[in-house]
Design a protein around this nucleic acid. Structure first.
Lengths: 235, 235
DNA sequence: CCAACTGTTAACGCCGTGTGAAACAAGCCC
DNA sequence: GGGCTTGTTTCACACGGCGTTAACAGTTGG
C-alpha cells in the first residue's frame, strides 16, 4: 500500500481501450479533466507513478497538460503520450514534453511493454529517500512528514525523534538511549525532555494516530507494532 | 553540431525497409555483421550516434549485440530495437538492453519520430535549457529569470543560487551544502553568506513570492513544496 | 573613481527547546 | 480496597539558539 502504482490519465473520460488495457494490466489509474486539478494535486503532495496523455482527440489540451506536468511542480515522471499517425510530425517540436509515445490505435501489449519500460527506466533513476511505517511517511530530502497523506508541521527535534522511532519500528528505547541517539549527548538529568517531545509528537499526529507511539512503562517508548489492539478511543 | 550522424545497424544486410527509411531521413549508417566487429570499433575509438538493432529475424544475435553495446566499453548510446509483435514479451526481461523499441512492420514516420526523440534525449535530454517551478522560470541560455512573466534583475550569485534551488524543488539543503554546490568551495564559518543571499533573492522575488524559498529551521533552505495552510490572515 | 556585486559582522526578535512542578494514572503493600 | 509509591502526562515559563535584517568593507569592472 505504500507505493501503489497510480497513473494520471488524460482526458477525463479515459479512452475505453486505454482504460481497459490499464485495468487488465493491473494498474491503478485516475483520469483527470484538466490542469485545474493539477494545482490541487501539487498542494496535496499527491504523486503519480506516471502519466498517460491521449493527444489524439484534444491535442491542445493534452500538450498543455504535458507542459504543466513538466514544470517541476510535480516531480518529473514518466510521461507517455498517445498520438494518431497524422500527429507524428508534431512530436518533433515537443520533444521535451514526453518520454515515450505510442500510435493509436495501439496494440494492448505494446502499451503494456512501453509502460513497463518507462517504469523500469524511472526506477533506476533517483528515487526519493524516504522512511515509512504504517500511515507515517518521512521524506528525508524535503524534511516533510505526512500521516495519512496529511502533511505534518514538525519542528526539527520532533522530526528527528519521529525519524528515529520510525526507522526502528517496534523496538523499545529507553529515554537514555533516545537522548543519546537522537539528541546526541550523554544523559544528565533531563529525562522529562523525552516525555515532552513525545507528547508534542502525539498531539501533532492527531487523536487517531497518537497511539502509534506507545509508552512501555518503566522502560521507555516504542513506535507501532500494536495498532489494532483495542482502540476503544471512541465513545 | 552538424557532425556526421552515423548509426550502427544490425544485421549486416540491413532490412530493406529500414535501410530505405534511414536513407530517406538523411541519416548515414553502417551495417555490421556481429559482435566481432565491435571490438575493432571499440579499439579504433569509433563511435556512433546510436544503434538500431533488428531483433525480429535473428533475435539471439541481436540481443547479444545489444549486450555488447551496453557493456560499457562504448559509452551508452541511444539504442533502438526492432521487434515483431510476438516478441513483445521478451522485452520485459531485457529492459536494460535498449532505450526504445518499435514494432515491425513499422511506419517510416514512426521510426523517424523515434530516432529524433532518442537523439534529442541523448543530446539535450540531460541538459535542459529551461528550468521552471511555479511562477519561476529560468532561461539557462539567456541567463534570465522571470517570475509571473516579470523579468528579474538578478546578480550572478543570486541567479546561480536560484537555479540550484529551482532545479531541485522541495529538497532541503544545508548552508554547507549550498556553499559547496553553488559557491563551489569548502567553507566553514561564513554560513551567513547563504542567509544574506537568500534574503536578497526573496526581496527580488517580491512580497507575494518571497515564501517560495522556505527556511527549515535548524536545517537549511528549500524552494517550494510548501504546505502553508495559511489561516486566512489576508483577505 | 564610481557603481555594483559579494561577503562579513553585529544587533534584534522570534520560536523552538528544555526544565520544573503539578495533575494524573498505574502498581504495590498492608 | 484504601492509601502510598512509582511512573507518566500535561502545563506554563524562561533561556538560548537560530534566522532575519541592516549596515559596512573588500573587490571587481566599466
Amino acid at each position: 500500500m505504500a507505493d501503489e502504482e497510480s497513473f494520471l490519465v488524460f482526458p477525463d473520460p479515459a479512452p475505453p481501450d486505454l482504460a481497459r488495457c490499464l485495468d487488465l494490466g493491473g494498474y491503478s489509474w485516475k483520469s483527470w479533466a484538466g490542469d485545474a486539478a493539477l494545482d490541487r494535486a501539487a498542494e496535496g503532495g499527491e504523486t503519480w507513478t506516471g502519466a498517460i496523455v491521449a493527444a489524439d482527440t484534444d491535442a491542445d489540451a493534452a500538450w498543455m497538460l504535458c507542459r504543466e506536468l513538466r514544470r517541476g511542480d510535480v516531480p518529473t515522471e514518466p510521461l507517455l503520450v498517445l498520438v494518431s499517425g497524422s500527429q507524428l510530425d508534431d512530436l518533433e517540436s515537443r520533444s521535451e514534453l514526453f518520454d515515450d509515445f505510442i500510435i493509436t490505435p495501439f496494440h494492448p501489449r505494446e502499451l503494456e511493454a512501453r509502460i513497463r519500460h518507462l517504469l523500469w527506466r524511472a526506477g533506476r533513476g533517483s528515487r526519493p529517500e524516504l522512511v515509512a511505517y504504517g500511515p507515517i511517511e518521512l521524506n528525508l530530502e524535503t524534511y516533510q512528514a505526512v500521516v495519512d497523506g496529511r502533511p505534518l508541521d514538525l519542528t526539527y527535534m520532533e522530526y528527528e525523534l519521529l525519524r528515529f522511532l520510525t526507522s526502528n519500528p517496534g523496538r523499545v528505547f529507553t529515554r537514555e538511549t533516545l537522548l543519546n541517539r537522537v539528541w546526541g549527548y550523554e544523559y544528565y538529568g533531563g529525562a522529562r525532555t523525552v516525555d515532552v517531545h513525545v507528547r508534542r509528537l502525539r498531539a501533532k499526529l492527531g487523536e487517531e494516530h497518537s497511539n502509534l507511539i506507545q509508552t512501555v512503562r518503566s522502560v521507555g517508548y516504542k513506535l507501532g507494532q500494536s495498532r489494532w489492539k483495542e482502540p476503544s478511543a471512541e465513545s
